[in-house]
């Protein structure tokens, strides 16, 4: 599978990554090479093999419904680039 420039741009948008116009063809080559490597997976027949998302077959351990967290807004918002009146700010969203 090779990825042309349009596809690279599509993926970059899906992942919300700005990439420089002049880098697109490099990405196109590199990503195509990686996909080429990855496609060697097709050399093995995996019909009937169940996919595993975790190495160990464990099941979830649930927590009890209890409030354990306190308000740390001030502390957390020290890392925030832009806040006002306790809210995080982003350029105006039009719905």
């Amino acid at each position: 599978m090779s990825l042309d420039k349009t596809e690279v741009q599509k993926i970059a948008w899906l992942a919300r990554l700005s990439i420089d116009e002049q880098d697109i063809s490099t990405y196109s080559d590199e990503l195509s090479n990686i996909l080429g490597l990855v496609e060697s997976m097709n050399s093995v027949d995996t019909n009937g093999i169940s996919p595993i998302a975790h190495p160990l077959d464990l099941t979830a351990r649930l927590r009890s419904d209890a409030i354990t967290e306190i308000n740390q807004r001030e502390q957390f918002q020290k890392n925030a680039p832009l806040t006002d009146a306790g809210c995080y700010l982003v350029p105006k969203v039009i719905e």
């Binding site: 690279v8 948008w13 700005s18 990405y27 990686i34």
Partner: peptide
């Protein structure tokens, strides 16, 4: 796009794109 484009380096971007794909 710009925050992420500027904040991540090339290898990270490559892998994010492969992953998204």
């Amino acid at each position: 796009c710009r925050s992420r484009g500027e904040g991540f380096g090339k290898e990270v971007k490559r892998r994010i794109m492969i992953g998204a794909y």
